[in-house]
Write a protein that binds this DNA or RNA. Structure first.
Lengths: 219, 219, 219, 219
DNA sequence: GATGAATGAGGATTCATTCAT
DNA sequence: AATGAATGAATCCTCATTCAT
């Protein structure tokens, strides 16, 4: 179920334990980002202190400022990496040919796989991206963060544009309905549950596609 | 724990300006609760300081503690009042006879009407109830808050139990999909938009009911 | 072992439950003083809040100010009542004829009996008098409180003046040594212990009187 | 919990002004502890605010928390250092050979010398140790503080065990009588007075040893 | 006599941030 | 690159006190 999106090259990918002795430098940077993602997701942005993050990387709070000029910038970086990862996973899933509905279902599955999936680091970055609400956006980065979020949701917009829909269907509303339902999943999802991310995504898209009314029911 | 904060006459009663000189005292209490709701919704629980709330009632921060023993208790009271109000609106909407799907649609409409509706105070209380996430729950009140949330969502559970559904439909998932989509609305809703709360609720439930696929589409 | 000092007439003596229905007024005053004594002794002056005291009399914090203009004045009143009670007990014990050493022993016993004795109210007032240290004296009452304390300790001074002592004995030091030892008792006294207040007082004075060296010991 | 605060070179070392530019950092820690001792003794634990302490070290209140996690921990550290210093002085005084009574007298003298002696820093630490009463102990540290106090008083217990005493003498009571009298001294001691710490200690122990009754007096 | 409500100063503590080393 | 130490503003909360009723 785990998408290999995390294998894509990038700063965070290098957070794996250092192999050779020499150039560890970049790892610290990546490890810091990953730690921030982890703690932000676990405690929420507002309740996370720089010391919390520092503790999660065996660093000192002051040291973080060598890498990022402020807590808000750290959030921005984590958020951006979240969008990058989830976006890449989404793109990969949607790239393979299929009907528009099939591709939407695969996109939704990729989205959920990142949020709930086996790779904890992906889940951290995705979780921050999905759970940190505009409330908490630091004022100086609201625009950037909103733009990032929009850039991701555009993928849904484009995919929905291709959907063959009954006349009069509000595609915008449909998109927001789907995204709302998907991003709500981490709030109730239990890994031991009957359905995994893919099954949830499939059910949700199909429910929207075919409706759930009983065959003959016309109430 | 002051869960009975909602025992005051009713939503409109608190908003009314004090008439006679005698019992103004109780109004302060209600005004405080309303101010807390307003600020909690606007800034989020974590970022709201007691001084913010105090300023919103023309009180001093210390005075709040005469009415509520802690910030967490204040949240609990606001949250409870939110559940009470939204719950009452939901119940009223659902009480009138109709098919299960009609009643669900009316319930969803009532839910959205509270969140986005004309009465700003309702929107404040409902907004806190819907937007404050478990992350921010003060530890000593997690249980109470979760119980409150569950008590509200049970209404959906009961309504969905009555729905005539295709065999194999996962009612739990359907409920969560609907709630997720509904609670997401305040994040994108614009009052100037084409559709109001009722229209959004109708579209969302109908989309789930009949599906949105084009008539002849069989992909 | 309980001295009947508490039976002496005075404001605090009326703190007993109201018998007849009519004039309860003074009782509240006395009950307030007793409650203050109780809480001051239990928590210490500094850590006691006006609300604590109020709660102990089923009063409101604000109401206390009808009786006493400030927390410091309350302390002063309690302290004075403590001195009055312990002083009266001391005087009564010392009044009966006997050798100077016998009278000193009886005085010390009375002192301890008040501090540790059966009457909890006496113990409260005496405890405040003995345990509240100059540190905590509210600036505006230092003088009064010190004077009260001195007025009590004068009794010891007078009694010691009558003692037949070896030439060169420092009576001041002897007094302070005895008082220090006596006032230290509440810090370690356990009611279940082998010796009661009277036995402790007797041992302490006799130890000072005869010395405790073994008979033939001349080291 | 920083009980090892006393691991710094020794009493005199902290008081010395910083010489070279290099390791001044550790001095701040010691200076903070000393300042806390000073203020705690002067104002009492309860009435001392973190700002008071900060002002006494030319630090800000917040900075203290870099060194100690709470006011209570600061008290604990000061108290422990007090016990360490007085304990060391006591041990040194008692170590030299002599009769049990001589050693007790020297111990008592050392005790008083620390409390009243020339070194103001010793007097601060010792004063806190001796004057802060269980009332004020922060709940989370009561056990530790009581254990510290007991560990010191054990020295008296051991010394008293060696005393040749008349049959039936209560050694426990004797110990408490002596400690009570000694710890009471700071409350009345005036440096200008006739007797210094050593003389007071000598008189007090001798008075207990030989008794103070006039030679022929047999009342 | 007593209370409910409010105040404002001050308390301990947290935290993003800075900076010399 | 990183750290230890420090800062100062802000946070939640407490409390003696006031006062209209």
């Amino acid at each position: 179920m785990k998408l290999d999106a995390g294998a894509t090259p990038g700063p965070a990918a290098e957070a794996a334990p250092p192999r050779r002795g020499a150039p560890r430098a970049h790892n610290r940077h990546a490890a810091l980002l990953a730690a921030a993602a982890r703690v932000f997701r676990a405690r929420g942005y507002g309740l996370t202190s720089m010391r919390d993050i520092a503790a999660a990387t065996a660093m000192t709070a002051g040291s973080i400022y060598y890498h990022y000029p402020s807590k808000g910038d750290l959030l921005l970086a984590v958020y951006a990496e979240g969008v990058r990862r989830v976006g890449a996973a989404f793109d990969a899933a949607v790239a393979r040919p299929g009907t528009p509905w099939q591709r939407l279902e695969r996109g939704a599955a990729a989205h959920l796989a990142m949020l709930l999936g086996a790779d904890p680091q992906d889940a951290d970055f995705a979780g921050v991206f999905v759970q940190v609400q505009p409330h908490d956006f630091p004022p100086e980065h609201v625009d950037a963060l909103v733009a990032l979020r929009d850039s991701y949701e555009d993928r849904f917009r484009r995919l929905l544009a291709a959907l063959p829909l009954a006349r009069g269907t509000d595609r915008t509303l449909l998109r927001l309905q789907l995204i709302g339902a998907l991003n709500h999943v981490p709030l109730w999802y239990r890994p031991e549950g009957r359905r995994g991310p893919a099954a949830i995504a499939r059910t949700m898209t199909r429910q929207l596609q075919r409706g759930v009314a009983a065959a003959g029911d016309r109430t």
